[in-house]
Simulated scan of single mutants.
Amino acid sequence: MAEMLFNPFKDLIFDEHFCFLTGDLTNENMSVFPEWLMDHFNLGNERIEMMDKTKSYKYADLKLPCSARVKDAFEELDTKILAAYNKGYEGMASLDEEQLFQWTGRIVYGLLYYEMVYERNRLQKKDEEFALSMPLRKRFGHFHLMLQSLVEPISFVGKKPWTITVFPLKYSADILSFRDDTINLMFSFGVNGFGFIACLQDNGVIGEKHSEILSKIKGHVLHPVQFEELYASFHYTDYILKQDPQYKVESHDNGINIEIEKTEKPPVFDFWDEDMYAQLLANYWQVYGIEREDILRPQKPRLSFLEDPYTKDFINPESIKLPF
């Protein structure tokens, strides 16, 4: 059955008449970002840039071709997410991780879809072939298969292939912050008293790597500067992670099972480069006027708002004087 499901990365099919999720012929579409989210924050006429910074789209113009059943399924999921969203952290924390994966995956895949279409069209104008490396085809193909769990009988066996962590955050209902990395399938989202970070295909490795700081965070309402630092750490850890995720995909009478291939080799991380990390963190902290030189200080430990650099104690968010 798995072989029968649509995989747009096999033949690089990104066409407005094929449902992005199932490949069914269609003339319908749905927004990349949920309508209620765009309406609440008046995002429709705002613009979002593609990765190469030369192309941007209005949020309201980002549409995915979809079949009626896919549209209905996402509308049902949106209703559940909105109900949880209205309850803030407690509501979001009560959601099943698979629902957060599907909801977040819709946005990340939607942006990835537009990256694919943009790159294909750009190359066609130059009479050049649009191609993706086999590792990327494989990674994106697995991600797309997992996202089809919304409408197909797909089950995740054992350890989940993602890290998703939700925590209380000192954000008002009128402030929205999100970051995405479509190539590495990452997303962060902060609003209405909660934040979450999603690594959509790390096989839980990044969450394990950060288990100590995540345990220290429990019971605290994070300051936004801590949220940005945590995502920067997740993001850079993903960058240095040397792992080619392998999955056992098995079809049976009742559907498809996806299981992480077991390996005796532990995950391998490249050398942590403090200069590179500090530059990434400075990009996230620029709203506070914090620059790379403030993070890497001569003869002093790296600046952190999460842990005291000497004792490694968690820094109480209430002690941070920066605005939020």
Rank of each mutant, 00 (worst) to 15 (best):
K87M: 08
K265D: 01
A2G: 13
L145Y: 07
K58R: 15
S215I: 07
G190Q: 09
A60C: 09
M134D: 11
L176Q: 11
L12T: 10
P298W: 07
T54D: 11
E129N: 05
D174T: 14
N184H: 14
E49C: 02
K160F: 04
H210E: 01
E261Q: 08
S155N: 07
V268D: 00
S215T: 13
L145W: 05
L214Q: 09
T22W: 07
K216C: 06
L77F: 06
L306C: 11
L43K: 14
L150Q: 04
V117S: 04
K10H: 11
D78W: 05
D253S: 14
H252N: 15
P245Y: 02
I290P: 09
E46D: 10
I290W: 09
A282N: 06
F101C: 00
W285C: 14
Q201S: 03
K300V: 00
M134P: 00
P317I: 06
N257W: 02
L5P: 00
Y109V: 07
E128A: 05
Q148D: 00
F101I: 04
E49M: 08
A68I: 01
V70H: 00
S251W: 11
V32E: 04
Q124E: 09
K262R: 07
F143I: 04
E75M: 03
C66V: 03
E75Q: 12
A60S: 14
L64S: 01
Y284F: 15
G105A: 06
L64V: 01
F18Q: 13
M116E: 11
L12Q: 03
E49T: 01
F227M: 12
K262N: 03
T26C: 10
N42M: 12
L281N: 04
L43T: 11
I206R: 00
A198E: 09
M186K: 15
